[in-house]
Simulated scan of single mutants.
Amino acid sequence: MALAAAPLLRLSISPPSPPPPAATASFLACTSRISMSPPSSVRLRHEGRHQGLAAAATASPATSSSPAADTERRKHELLRAVQETGRGSTAKPDQRAAIEEAIVCVEELGAGEGSPLDLAALDGTWRLCYTSASDVLVLFEAAERLPLLQVGQIYQKFECKDRSDGGVVRNVVRWSIESLLEEQDGATLMVSAKFAVLSKHNIFLQFEEVAVQNIKISEQLQGLIAPAILPRSFLSLQILQFIKTFRAQVPVNGPERRSPGGLYYLSYLDRDMLLGRSVSGGGVFIFTRAQPLL
């Protein structure tokens, strides 16, 4: 066969030459020095490195985040949880459960005994971001059933800056009727109440009045009442002025009748977030700080 006929190569392999005696002595001297204990400077650097690693390993993660950062993180997670829920009207059971857990995490920051309710911090306008209260959700449900009805922003306005025992709170609902009023802000429903401070977290509401005001009619309706292409008569101008300044108010508290009160639990309050729970009617409320209402 061709492979069998192929000649075999003969390689000459010779053993390696031993190192010279001087090189062997130098190598042995070097290894003997390495096997000895390291100098003190090397030991110090070595021990310091291990001590630094041990300190970094035992450092607590909590020390890297301040209490202020933890507060902002919890608030951010809560606001993120209520997104895409239509202020609570479209929230599913699993979403409501997750939101409730996030609310409790924020409420823990303001729990415990301490100074009384800070009315100076409470004073101002707060915009509703989420609620599970049935008396507010019914407004959203009505807007779904009535296509022409629009529910805009909902606010809670506290007037108690220079008070220590209570003040006034106004629930403000912006709403509209399509083609008749301006979108989302065509009229204002306002429910006013006095409140008294009972404890650090509890206030008692006594409702006083329900009013409809700040009516802003649409351009189409203004054109029907007083066409722009025709000279506007004194009567048409009076009608427009009457609508703009119209205010219908219904007292709900007086000498002959007294409105039922309500206990409101303010579970958390800081410069830009307010959490509340309606003790009598049930439901939670999440508010964020808003610009003052005109």
Rank of each mutant, 00 (worst) to 15 (best):
I177S: 05
I177L: 15
S179N: 14
L180F: 06
L181D: 06
E182M: 13
E183Y: 03
Q184A: 15
Q184V: 08
Q184W: 03
Q184G: 07
D185E: 14
G186N: 04
G186C: 04
G186M: 05
G186V: 08
G186R: 03
A187L: 06
A187W: 02
A187C: 07
T188Y: 01
T188H: 05
L189A: 09
L189V: 09
L189C: 06
M190Y: 02
M190C: 15
V191H: 09
A193I: 03
A193H: 02
A193S: 11
K194T: 15
K194N: 09
A196Q: 03
L198H: 04
S199I: 03
S199C: 06
S199E: 02
S199K: 05
K200W: 06
H201W: 11
N202T: 11
I203K: 01
F204V: 08
L205M: 12
L205Y: 02
F207Y: 09
F207G: 00
E208D: 13
E209W: 04
E209I: 08
V210D: 05
A211Y: 03
Q213V: 15
Q213P: 07
Q213K: 15
N214W: 07
N214I: 15
N214D: 13
I215C: 05
K216T: 10
S218P: 01
S218N: 08
S218V: 07
S218F: 00
E219G: 13
Q220I: 15
Q220A: 12
L221V: 12
L221M: 10
Q222P: 09
Q222A: 10
G223C: 09
G223F: 10
G223L: 12
L224Y: 14
L224K: 07
I225G: 04
I225E: 00
I225Q: 03
I225R: 00
A226N: 01
A226H: 04
P227E: 10
P227M: 09
A228Y: 11
I229W: 15
P231Q: 10
R232E: 13
S233F: 10
S233T: 12
F234G: 15
F234R: 14
L235D: 05
L235P: 00
L235W: 09
S236F: 12
S236I: 13
S236G: 07
S236N: 05
L237R: 08
L237D: 07
Q238G: 15
L240Y: 06
Q241F: 15
Q241A: 14
Q241D: 14
F242C: 08
F242Q: 04
F242P: 00
F242I: 11
I243A: 02
I243G: 00
I243W: 01
I243P: 03
K244T: 14
T245E: 14
T245F: 14
T245A: 13
T245K: 12
T245I: 11
F246A: 11
R247S: 09
R247P: 01
R247Q: 08
A248Q: 10
A248R: 13
Q249R: 13
V250M: 12
V250N: 10
V250G: 08
V252F: 01
N253M: 06
G254I: 02
P255I: 05
P255W: 00
R257T: 12
R258A: 14
S259I: 04
S259W: 04
P260C: 07
G261T: 05
G261D: 04
G262Y: 00
G262P: 02
G262D: 01
G262C: 08
L263Q: 00
L263E: 03
L263H: 00
Y264A: 05
Y264M: 07
Y265V: 05
L266G: 00
Y268F: 01
Y268M: 01
L269W: 06
L269R: 05
D270I: 01
R271T: 14
